[in-house]
Simulated scan of single mutants.
Amino acid sequence: MSSPSTYCLTLAGPMLKRGFWLYVWRVEVPGGAEPWLYVGRTGDNSSPNAGAPYTRMGQHLGSLENQNALRKHLLAKGLTLAECTFHLISHGPIHPEVERPASAEERKARRAELMELHLPLRNEVGAYERDLAAALADAGYQVLNTVRWKPVGNPDQWGRVLAAFAKHFPKLEQAR
């Protein structure tokens, strides 16, 4: 058995804010190989919710089958999660979450109305998620996931998104 170690995680407070965010996980793997990237977004497909990147962080590495996509991709590559180092780069919120009624019964009663407000925002941010994953792959990064999404986003907003992530992924400068 190994002896206990101490680790430190720094979390920027704004990453707790609910809304429509884009994020990229950069996963450093043992042996110095190129890191793997995973591109994601907040903004549910099945409800009018748009959580915070902090919330998705734990879900991605957890054990719930419908929330742990990053974990599944890494295990499929034969990687041991405990041997990896994880970095989460988040950008947003691009849009705030639509109104979130305090009570569950009001949320249920207004679900259709709230989804109507939620869907255009989700579709726009989904387009940036797809385009960011493709741009990173085209720039030569190892991207774990392919994002399939039909809607398109706003070209001006996409330019701002690309510039924000290019600060952390310099090879994206070629895509600008």
Rank of each mutant, 00 (worst) to 15 (best):
P170W: 12
E113G: 01
R107N: 08
N123Y: 07
H73A: 09
H168W: 15
E99Y: 00
L61F: 00
L88H: 00
M115K: 09
L75H: 13
S47V: 06
L144S: 06
K150Q: 12
A135V: 06
G62N: 07
H73D: 14
S63D: 07
K77R: 14
R122G: 06
G92M: 01
R122H: 13
W158E: 12
P120W: 10
Q142N: 09
D44H: 15
A104S: 15
K72L: 11
E83R: 13
L64Y: 15
K150A: 14
R176E: 10
L74K: 01
R122P: 08
T42W: 11
D44Y: 12
G58Q: 08
A175R: 14
A127H: 05
R41Q: 13
E65Y: 11
K108H: 04
N45C: 12
Q67F: 07
S63G: 11
A52C: 08
G126N: 08
L88S: 01
A82C: 06
E113Y: 01
Q59C: 04
A164H: 14
E129I: 00
S103H: 10
R56K: 10
E113T: 02
A33Q: 11
F165H: 11
Q142I: 08
L117E: 01
P170M: 14
E83K: 14
R130I: 00
G159K: 12
L74D: 04
G43W: 02
H73F: 06
P101R: 02
Q157I: 01
T42D: 05
P170K: 15
L144G: 08
G126L: 03
N145T: 03
V39K: 05
K150V: 12
L37V: 06
E99P: 00
D138N: 04
A52F: 06
E34V: 07
A134Q: 10
R160I: 14
H87P: 09
G140S: 10
Q157V: 03
L136V: 07
P101G: 09
T85E: 11
N154I: 03
C84V: 05
N68S: 11
G140L: 03
Y141C: 03
G40H: 03
K72Q: 13
G62K: 01
G40I: 01
L37H: 09
E97Y: 00
Y38T: 04
K167G: 13
V39G: 04
N154E: 00
E173H: 14
L121T: 04
D138Y: 05
Q174A: 15
W149T: 06
H60A: 03
E124P: 02
R122E: 15
L74C: 05
L172E: 07
G58F: 00
L162D: 09
H95N: 05
A82Q: 10
N66S: 14
Y54S: 07
L70Q: 03
G62F: 05
K77E: 07
E116F: 00
E83A: 15
A139W: 03
